[in-house]
């Protein structure tokens, strides 16, 4: 095996190893993988400034210049990548078998790892550095094994919902804190003791308010409705509230059916005892979150109900989000989704 080939293999293993580790790191997700994939190109741009001369400001020319440079170092064959401008977008085609990252690309989904195309990350980093503009990307691989990449100027730079700024943890740009289940359970038990009739309302409203803040932030980053919704559901898992599965989503009808495995509220009931006199659905915080997510993403007032709860013996909690019937809707001031 040639030295160059084993080096490429090592790079693939390195990416797989990073993604395998990230899977177990709290708050990690696709955004961070994207940042990792952009990293090497950023270093190369800095280290080889003299050799990399970008004479054109056309996205296709910028990417070709960078590929030519990598070819001059024996890393790839530049002409394997076919570039085509389509309006403001850049379309790239490459046979997957000719890509240095095919091993990572093929194995990551099989092993259930986070995945982000390393080559796409390279293009994004180069375009951002040379043109000063962020690009969003999508990749589709056809049946012949040809990858079709579409790079489009992003309306807003991507940011992460859960982030760390210095010593402060932030969610959707606001300061956040990490609570243990025990601490959260003690809050619930205190409300139950002092004001039991408010418990479910407090949880639903708290979920709705915090969900609105998250959803507004996500909406500004992800204009595509379905992508935005998936990002939000992933955040629920990320922040430890449960593992959410989107069973069905119908944006035109304002409906969603969701399942949550191992909801943190169901777990509290199991560990710290019932919140109510008789077994009943418990996950009002999640219910509020989902209602806010769908309401903000679809810009339509939606109510979410928990139809089954894991705490009542099921394998998961199931939620149905549906629009408020317009004929029964009271004429009120529009709801302020933000926390004042």
């Amino acid at each position: 095996m040639k030295g160059n080939e084993i080096s490429k293999e090592i790079i693939n293993y390195l990416y797989m190893s990073i993604c395998k580790t990230l899977k177990n790191v709290p708050f990690s997700n696709r955004y961070w993988v994207e940042q990792i994939m952009m990293g090497p190109a950023r270093y190369i741009l800095e280290e080889y400034t003299d050799e990399l001369q970008f004479t054109s400001k056309k996205p296709a020319d910028v990417c070709v210049t960078f590929l030519d440079f990598l070819e001059s170092k024996g890393f790839l064959v530049s002409k394997d990548y076919q570039m085509e401008a389509s309006g403001n977008d850049l379309l790239v085609r490459v046979e997957r078998d000719k890509c240095n990252y095919r091993q990572y690309c093929l194995r990551a989904p099989v092993e259930g790892l986070l995945f982000y195309c390393a080559r796409v990350g390279t293009f994004q980093a180069v375009l951002q550095k040379v043109l000063g503009e962020s690009y969003s990307a999508s990749v589709e691989t056809d049946q012949c094994g040809v990858c079709h990449v579409k790079l489009s100027p992003a309306s807003k730079p991507k940011d992460e919902i859960v982030n760390r700024e210095g010593h402060m943890l932030k969610i959707a740009g606001r300061r956040a804190l990490l609570l243990s289940q025990q601490t959260f359970a003690s809050l619930l038990m205190s409300i139950k003791e002092h004001s039991p009739h408010t418990l479910r309302h407090v949880l639903y409203d708290a979920g709705y308010r915090s969900g609105s803040t998250l959803a507004i932030r996500a909406r500004s980053i992800y204009p595509d409705t379905e992508e935005c919704f998936h990002v939000l559901l992933n955040e629920i898992k990320n922040i430890g509230l449960g593992n959410v599965e989107l069973v069905s989503f119908n944006p035109s009808q304002g409906r969603a059916r969701l399942r949550c495995y191992d909801s943190f509220q169901a777990a509290i009931v199991e560990e710290y005892g019932p919140l109510y006199r008789t077994p009943q659905v418990n996950c009002d915080f999640l219910r509020g979150l989902f209602a806010a997510f769908v309401s903000v993403v679809l810009e339509e007032e939606v109510i979410c109900e928990e139809m089954n709860c894991q705490s009542m013996g099921g394998n998961y909690c199931e939620f149905l989000a549906m629009p408020v019937p317009k004929n029964l809707l009271r004429k009120e001031e529009p709801r302020d989704w933000r926390i004042d």
């Binding site: 109510i303 109900e305 139809m307 549906m322 629009p323 408020v324 809707l329």
Partner: peptide, 11 residues
């Protein structure tokens, strides 16, 4: 029921 935020359609 709707005024009490009950999702009547779902039920």
């Amino acid at each position: 029921l709707l005024n009490f935020k009950v999702g009547i359609t779902a039920y």
